[in-house]
Design a protein around this nucleic acid. Structure first.
Ligand code: SF4
Ligand code: SF4
Lengths: 161, 161
DNA sequence: TTATTATGGATACTATAGGTCCATATTAAT
DNA sequence: ATTAATATGGACCTATAGTATCCATAATAA
């Protein structure tokens, strides 16, 4: 259970883009050398980010990438979901087992015909809760918030002189 | 980014053990058929749980597994960490890149010789925060809490009669 | 028109998850 | 002591996902 390296790369690439915002587009070469990742691999990742509307890309001379929206509207969650997919953290595999009947159906069978089998399972309930918490946190942290913190450090440095 | 099936199995097995607590040990056969998982595979998982002190095991006739401590002292986090390992959610891979210097070192180099390179990286900071939140939530939910909820449902059912 | 850049398909390698089988060790019951 | 039942651990296999490279093609600005 770990985030993939691709997510790592994507986040760093976006931070880089956010940092060079006012300049021209940033080409894959610059990104690649800044992050220390091969151009071929990184370009796949950037492609994904573009397909999901996180960045814009323009080919041709002086082309490259730029953020498709302000950095404070690109959350960590957005990036993670693009790269890792939107599958949920916990997916029940054996919902036809005897176990299942105890935890999800018993007590619901006769009581509520309104919700047909939609009675939430107790294990899933905990896990989905965990996922929600995680998502909320990741939603609240954006590329901009990283940039801001970096700037704060930088200005500390200046003040000290 | 998903929890493995093994974690799923482990959680269900523990719930089963918790449910049959006062009875004798529960053998792998019963567990296996209750969960709908092969004995061979499930036994590997149970072995891991034993090595980490979550369950006790006794071989021989009428042997089997039982919880090594009360169900309210076995958190989801405990189980997950046994099965998935204790690696952190986000592990930085390219800490020698140019990027890194911007985000983790700049502003720290001259300022603080006390903490040698221990200046926390800003991307990691967010991710570690996320992990902490997740862990806290998972720590607060135990096998017992699932059992309790199941019991609540059950008694509703009884009251209705 | 051309040089430059992104895109997407094909391919390969690797690591991990998921799963099986069997030989061995351990224990309780007889 | 013997035996039957049970857990354990090693060896092995397969499928899938992550990581990565290469190349042919498309799109764009100069
Ligand atoms: S009890 Fe929940 S997690 Fe378990 S099998 Fe049923 S739906 Fe899945
Ligand atoms: S900035 Fe943080 S996440 Fe990025 S390379 Fe440095 S330590 Fe790793």
């Amino acid at each position: 259970m770990q985030f993939s390296k691709s997510t790592d790369y994507a986040l760093h690439a976006l931070v880089h883009l956010g940092h060079s915002e006012r300049c021209n587009n940033v080409g894959i070469k610059e990104l690649s050398s800044a992050l220390g990742v091969s151009e071929s691999y990184l370009s796949k990742i950037m492609s994904k980010l573009r397909q999901d509307g996180i960045v814009r890309a323009v080919p041709g001379v002086n082309g490259g990438y730029e953020l498709a929206r302000p950095a404070d509207q690109i959350s960590f969650l957005d990036v993670i979901q693009v790269i890792e997919g939107r599958q949920q953290l916990f997916e029940c595999s054996n919902s036809s087992s005897r176990q299942h009947r105890l935890l999800a159906e018993e007590g619901a069978a006769g009581r509520d015909q309104k919700r047909p089998g939609k009675n939430e399972c107790l294990v899933e309930k905990v896990m989905n809760g965990a996922e929600q918490h995680l998502h909320q946190y990741l939603q609240e942290h954006t590329i901009q918030s990283v940039l801001d913190e970096a700037f704060k450090r930088c200005s500390h440095e200046v003040n000290k002189k």
